[in-house]
């Protein structure tokens, strides 16, 4: 009972309380949206825009400073897209995949590094946008649309004929895959980031100092990995949708 009392005491001090599933609702017409998600996502977008402008304000042939860093980032994103989609087709997809990675990465790290919870809002609490399932489902559905678009724009309706490759038995599996892909994409990201924030939150609640640090560092690692996984999977789905079975052996 002592322990419970201490916990209650901590809770009443409100040094670090955990709030799950409470949202800061805004109403637009008759629709409700989660305000805390948009507030932090605007911060993330702001960070990305400022970084982009700072890097491209004065482009030089011999890059220095921040331009150098952002070129490294762009090279990384291009490499990610190129590895999954292939040298020929990857260029138009760099903005989509790159933005997926950058947005998720900056969201996750901002959630892990910035103590959003200290900023009081009327309801719920600020945290990484990727902790909200709306965000991850939105990205997963966009990824689905993207790879359908990629496949259909490349092969027309013949894209669906490829479901029967190499044998018609594959058709139901491929059809189910179209549903499980966005599901697994969104829940993987959502679950990992939420679990990380919850674990750190619980540890901070129990022992506010030092002890949560290793878990926070692990959280940084997980966050980066999750962004990479999401972007890589999106790129690989797009690449798979565009790859042509007939010409495979000619490449």
């Amino acid at each position: 009972m002592d322990l419970a009392n201490t916990l209650n005491l901590l809770h009443s001090v409100n040094l670090a309380a955990i709030e799950v599933g409470e949202h800061f609702y805004w109403e637009i017409g008759k629709y409700k949206i989660h305000g805390q998600v948009f507030l932090v996502s605007w911060f993330v977008i702001g960070v990305l825009l400022v970084a982009s402008i700072a890097a491209t304000r004065n482009i030089q042939r011999i890059p220095t400073g921040f331009q150098n860093f952002m070129e490294y980032v762009l090279d990384f994103l291009r490499g990610l897209a190129k590895d999954q989609i292939g040298e020929k087709e990857y260029r138009p997809w760099v903005p989509f995949i790159g933005t997926l990675f950058l947005f998720i990465f900056v969201s996750n790290w901002s959630g892990a590094l910035i103590p959003w919870k200290l900023i009081e809002i009327p309801e719920g609490e600020l945290s990484a946008p990727t902790v909200d399932i709306n965000t991850t489902v939105a990205f997963a559905l966009l990824t689905s649309l993207a790879y359908f678009y990629a496949g259909i724009s490349k092969k027309g309706l013949g894209y669906f004929a490829d479901y029967a490759q190499p044998s018609p038995i594959m058709v139901p599996f491929r059809a189910i895959e179209d549903f499980t892909r966005p599901l697994s994409l969104s829940f993987r990201l959502f679950g990992n980031i939420l679990a990380d924030e919850l674990a750190v939150g619980v540890l901070v609640l129990l022992v506010p100092l030092i002890v949560p640090l290793p878990l926070m560092i692990l959280g940084l690692f997980t966050s980066a990995i999750q962004a990479l996984i999401f972007a890589t999977l999106a790129a690989s789905y797009i690449g798979e949708a565009m790859e042509s079975h007939g010409e495979e052996h000619h490449d």
């Binding site: 629709y31 948009f38 399932i133 965000t135 966009l142």
Partner: peptide, 10 residues
């Protein structure tokens, strides 16, 4: 809690 956040976020 899925609501209008999803399409707006997209």
């Amino acid at each position: 809690d899925l609501d209008a956040t999803l399409p707006l976020m997209a």
